[in-house]
Amino acid sequence: MMSDSSTEMVVSVQGLSKTYRSGGTEVLALQPLSFEAPAGEILAFLGPNGAGKTTAIRILAGFLAADSGQAKICGFDVAVDPLEVRARLGYLPEHNPLYLDMRVEDFLRFAAKARSLAGTSLEQAIDRVVAQTGLAEVFRRRLSECSKGYRQRAGLAQALLHDPELLILDEPTNGLDPVQVVEMRRLVRELGQEKTVLLTTHILPEVEALADRVVLLRQGQKVVDGPLMDLQAPQAGLCQLAIAAQCSLVDLENAAAAAGATWLAPRAAPFALDGLHAGLVELPSAMAIPDFAQSLQAAGVLPLQLAPQGGPLESWFLQAEGQQ
């Protein structure tokens, strides 16, 4: 049944949890997870492998049942109205499983009929997704004979046939070459202008390129949930900094520690210069870099390199690891 409270949200998840039994022991794959996604948002599920991203979206797609909690898509409970939910979402599973013995055309017709499309609306839907995903060139080719990029497009095309309100993409650029990755991201960005997109990834640049909002998962638990712009603000998260100075490594380490940084590891000198030594330090945030540089200078260590490593999002990622 439709719920009034959650109709504005395309995705509404409350306290979703899932436990697996593996080798006689129970593994908590998803700790009570709650989040929402409004219409027209690209929400990225970010996290290392095994963080629970795929488990979460498999529950949303109706492939797995949750142990507890409630997930609603377009106001329909995935456990109570699975057919209503499936009619409103397009799903591209991880590793993009396809019927490789079928031709692209036959596969799309099969998927369209499974989604109750018929007659003119079926033909129009196929024409639309073929144009959207650029499949015309391989339309009559067997999927087994298509490149990985075209297969990924075919997987995306089947998810778009019924023009769903929600698109769930599990690692959509997994295994693609750089050109195909750029192409797939362009497609997702275009689709995100008119649909809610929920994508999972462990690739930070992908999140930065696509997402409006990020949910960071770690060991089945949500550790960060916020707009990408907030997470990318320089004051947010730990900041790793590569530093180099013309002094001994011990002096560099001591000066960095005295200036308020955490010494992480020595590094190779960034360029050839007598007595140049380098290391990696961590600061509470990128905002602390100017004070840190002044403190080094005050200690008699002139920094010849001060290079932030990764973006603020990576800092959040590292901070989440640290919290665990």
Binding site: A61, F63, L83, R86, Y91, P97, Y99, A114, S116
Partner: peptide, 14 residues
């Protein structure tokens, strides 16, 4: 084996 059951079981068919 091929993983296509994830596709089949998430299409709107009983």
């Amino acid at each position: 084996r091929a993983g296509t059951e994830e596709l089949l079981l998430t299409w709107p068919m009983r």
